[in-house]
């Protein structure tokens, strides 16, 4: 068992990286690794609520974030600076995550044994 952080950096609107990072997160959690998921930069956009009626041609995988509960993944974070840059607040997000400033983010990453960045 290891402490592993997955850093989600890609926007859900123009790439499937977020979805593949989610699959990876769940696979790692399924074999009892301790997962931390961090949304940085355009990755923040993955957490905005989805308009299910809009015509959008990539798979809507964001519902899958609700699986975190089932896999006991509770360490969910967003980068404060990325949020401010994009004028997004915690209330805008579709699920609860903790906001970290740069120093706190560094401390969190320093605690991890492995980091995967997608």
């Amino acid at each position: 068992m290891q402490h592993i952080a997955i850093i989600q950096r890609q926007s859900p609107y123009n790439s499937s990286g977020g979805r593949e990072a989610l699959d990876l997160t769940l696979a790692l959690a399924a074999v009892e690794h301790q997962l931390t998921v961090i949304f940085i930069g355009d990755g923040i956009y993955q957490l905005l609520p989805l308009n299910l009626n809009s015509d959008f041609s990539l798979k809507r995988y964001q519902q899958g974030f609700k699986l975190f509960g089932l896999y006991e993944i509770e360490q969910l974070y967003v980068c404060q600076h990325s949020m401010q840059q994009r004028q997004i607040t915690l209330e805008d997000l579709s699920f609860a995550a903790k906001q970290l400033d740069t120093i706190a983010m560094q401390q969190l990453l320093a605690k991890q044994q492995q980091i995967v960045c997608i």
Partner: peptide, 17 residues
Amino acid sequence: AGLAEFAMRLTNSKLVQ
């Protein structure tokens, strides 16, 4: 292989991406 196999093999090693 599956991601599950990757995850299991990761247990005793240091990951470099």
